[in-house]
Computed example of a mutant assay.
Amino acid sequence: MHTRGTLRNTWHLGIKEFHSLLGDWTMLFLIVFMFTGSIYADARARPESLQRAAIAIADEDRSQLSARIVAALQPPQFITPEMIELADIDKGMDAGRHTFVLDIPPNFQRDVLAGRSPALQLNVDATRQSQAQTGTGYIQRIINDEVRAFVQGYPSVTPQAVELVPRALFNPNLTQGWFAAVTAIINNITMLGILLTGAALIREREHGTIEHLLVMPVTPLEIMLSKVWSMAVVVLVASSFSLQVVVKIALGVVVPGSALLFALGTLLYLFAATSIGIFMGTLARNMPQFGLMSILVLLPLQILSGALTPRESMPELVRVLMSFAPTTHYVGLAQGVLFRDAGIAVVWPEFVMVALIGAVFFALAHHRLRHTIGQMQA
């Protein structure tokens, strides 16, 4: 009976949040713009420079020349190459662990010394669009430099240019807008998930309606749950519309992944994002203070989560700290599902991490909300 009452109160309080949001024209404009005009504009983002790109090498030749090539692909442009087997190329690319995978075929050194022009295959994760374009040129130049330096020890051999055959996966034309548009949706989900719930709580305090709630037979948990589910529904509907209409139709982006699996991951992530928003709403005393606090929270979450810059390019300390942020795991989940058509068998670790971190933030936000309401009642 108590559970039924909790669900009923949570439902009615959530409906109240919808009515309150419909009366806030500024927030409605922000939601519409962030999932339409902003997405379209971000699809024209400027690419970044190559820095510590993730690369793996399948060395089938295992020769002196192939060892030289492996040794040349080093920081700062690339991380230290991971040596893998040929059968593991697709698995690593599908999981998003490698931006580049270079396949050095058998008898590569012998073909070079015989004066032939052997071909190497370079597999490129084109979801990291800017690195894919820049890195392919880097790798081509490095390989040709190493081949020329190697054959200098064999005067009878005339150096021939090595043919590098790139294979761009998940974005065959390296279209920048494909990556930027989906990334913008991911970032806007984070931003609005936090802003809407925090602003809803502060709006209650500024308008004096929080006092009305305190005299009603509702608990802090019901108040919090109502804001979480209502704002999560708003962001989920807006992001799904943006993906289907703005990204797929207006921008013509091919999204091979499951929209349903992405929506489930987004709903789980919004559980964490809205909890962060409520926690911040209990700390801020008014809307301007909440806005300033949001800048300090949103910028690290968006810039350091891997959505804009691959995490491999970041310092080790930053990567460790950001592993405790739900945004980091949600970005991996969303990119894996939408770009690489990854199924639940591939992205389930990200689902688990988002759920666990979300539960921690929900507990912290609930504790802080109870404390805040207790102070107001006193």
Rank of each mutant, 00 (worst) to 15 (best):
Q289G: 14
R311F: 05
M314W: 07
Q289Y: 10
Q302V: 14
S305K: 00
S313K: 01
E316A: 15
L317M: 09
L308V: 12
I295H: 02
M293N: 09
G291C: 13
M280F: 10
M293T: 11
M287T: 10
L304V: 04
S313V: 04
V297M: 11
R311Y: 03
L283W: 13
E316D: 15
L308A: 11
I295V: 14
P310C: 03
A307T: 10
N286E: 15
P288N: 05
M287G: 06
M280C: 10
P288S: 04
G281V: 10
M314D: 06
E316R: 13
A284W: 05
G281S: 06
M314P: 08
L298G: 02
F290H: 01
I295K: 08
M280Y: 07
N286A: 14
N286C: 08
G291E: 07
P288L: 04
I295R: 05
G306S: 03
F290N: 01
M314Q: 13
M314E: 11
L299K: 09
G306C: 01
R311G: 03
R285E: 13
T309C: 11
R311I: 12
L317V: 12
E312H: 12
L299A: 13
S313E: 02
L304Q: 01
V297L: 15
P300Q: 00
G306D: 00
G291P: 08
A284Q: 06
A307V: 08
S313C: 03
Q289E: 15
L317H: 09
P315V: 01
E316M: 15
M287N: 11
L299S: 08
L299V: 15
M287K: 10
E316I: 14
E312I: 07
L317S: 11
L317K: 09
V297R: 10
L317F: 10
E312S: 14
